[in-house]
Design a protein around this nucleic acid. Structure first.
Lengths: 309, 309
DNA sequence: TATCCTTACGGAATTCGTAAGCATG
DNA sequence: CATGCTTACGAATTCCGTAAGGATA
């Protein structure tokens, strides 16, 4: 048994059993992967993969039983390296964030700037995706920290923590009738075509819930995954927008106006998630501390000892 | 990084950093061990061991931080093999019990007989030791199941379960004055020299506690770790014995008499312990079921999924 | 001086890639 | 017929043991 074999097995599961892809992903050749997997199966005395003809199509029952252990072993191998790097003292390393456009565009820039100042030698990777994809990336160890307002709790092997609370706001073109409406109401908003986030993005569920509670069926004419796109279409006059208030920049968005809507929609909590069992290097903890200053010392401690948590 | 290196590191810690011993224990040569460890340290970029001159004398701080992960990885490697064996279906394998003389001699024989009947191809190993040694053997993975009345909870990484309850009894040579004494008292016993178990063995603490509570200081003239030795010396007339009642066999021990003492000493609970995180093969579970029939289905389930527990 | 680790060298074993072959959708 | 796995062969690498050397209790 060796680590290469385990890596191949894990990757085969991730890449839906296409060994050619596995080989490409892990810088090996396909016959090498094929053989390594077979050798592991021989050594263990069970077939891990179901073969249809010559192709692999799934995990056998023993395969399913073993894959979690394999996963943990490889995570531990990574932990070993990380802990060692931690002690070797240099601040070099990698930090891969998985996050939505909203966070990447509006919430993260100041934090990342500060972080980079303190850890200039850490290579930062920013992976964007849907909340589900984010949760999956962290859960699979492809990202170190996931940041999102939704769905982070859909994977059991994530530890998540609240970071900050934000609100939705309505944006309208300057001169729009709603500007002088006074205290906004859902009814008033529902009179106009609406441009907002895609389902499952950036608190969209709270928007829907508010209208549903009020018995309203607003006309959502366009959805997008990011506020920049939404603002663009609001500027063009397609309708009024509902976005995260932090997406509005008075200096840049002079053709738009922000209307306070805190009283209309449930507040949203952006959460951060890390994979259970993954060791977090010192600078990762520091990043979390920067991004979620509200996290208590005990929360951070539980992150540092993920096995005990 | 490879498993051989990890094994060497783990064994080095266990063998108090004597690499020559490590090599002997793992069927390798000392230079090989030396080199493998150094290569791992190079790869990780930290020294795991403190060297005084050319000798290894302890773990460095990073070494201490890493050793637990190394341990877990090797346990997982073993789990992998066990789970695979489990599925490959054959009932061959090994089961190493760590236990005291008392259990091995009096409690285990019928269970082992039954077990062997059902799993003739499982190789049984019986390691004897003090309760502390037993706990250690299980904790280090040198034994699969530890059985003892004491000390099993001194290691945090053991899961323990009660198996059965037993009592101490007084044994005397036939014709001894105490035979006709009627209901025994601690005072009456304390009149005679006593032969019983060593400290830390077979419920000895309960014996001491009873006398202490009664304000008595009995004359313990000889201690031994097993009832066979104790009985021998009682037969010779060295004193009266206090042993586990199951150690008395009316047929074999015709020169001795057993005096009921259930009312004098706290009852003892023999416990069974397994290592957290170790996968238990089907026949191991079956052994536990045979030895501790009182264990509930949920207890057994929690044993089957040690990581979740 | 015995114990214990290191270094140096050489052979054995393992690993891995290339090339060719074959089954399947 | 393109995709994807297997087999065969050979080269490169890694692994590991023997032998000799040096430091320490």
């Amino acid at each position: 048994m060796n680590f290469q074999q385990l890596r191949f097995v894990r990757e085969a599961v991730r890449r839906s059993f296409n060994l050619t892809e596995v080989a490409a992903a892990l810088y090996a050749t396909q016959p090498g992967v094929s053989r390594a997997i077979k050798e592991l199966e021989d050594e263990l005395g069970v077939e891990l993969f179901v073969r249809r003809g010559k192709r692999l199509v799934g995990l056998t029952e023993p395969g399913r039983a073993l894959i979690d252990v394999v996963d943990r072993m490889l995570t531990d191998a990574q932990n070993l390296r990380r802990i060692a790097d931690q002690f070797s003292g240099d601040d070099a390393g990698g930090l891969i964030l998985a996050t939505t456009h909203t966070q990447a565009r509006y919430a993260l820039p100041p934090v990342i700037k500060q972080f980079k100042g303190r850890y200039p030698r850490v290579h930062l990777g920013l992976h964007q995706g849907s909340p589900q994809q984010i949760a999956e990336m962290v859960s699979k160890g492809q990202a170190d920290i996931g940041i999102s307002t939704e769905a982070l709790d859909t994977f059991a092997d994530l530890l998540t923590y609240p970071c900050y609370i934000w609100h939705h706001a309505v944006i309208v073109p300057t001169g729009h009738p709603l500007v002088d409406f006074g205290m906004l109401t859902l009814d008033a908003i529902a009179e106009y075509p609406i441009v907002t986030y895609d389902e499952a993005f950036t608190g969209r569920s709270h928007i829907d819930a508010a209208f549903l509670r009020a018995g309203l069926a607003p006309d959502v004419v366009l959805t997008a995954i990011d506020a920049d796109v939404i603002k663009t279409y609001v500027e063009v006059g397609l309708g009024i927008g509902i976005v995260a208030s932090m997406a509005y920049d008075p200096a840049r968005d002079q053709s738009l106006e922000l209307l306070d809507s805190r009283h209309l929609f449930e507040p949203n909590t952006t959460r951060l998630g890390v994979r259970k069992g993954s060791f977090l290097r010192g600078y990762m903890m520091e990043f979390i501390r920067l991004f979620a200053p509200g996290l208590g010392a005990d929360d951070l401690a539980s992150l540092a000892e993920p096995r005990a948590a």
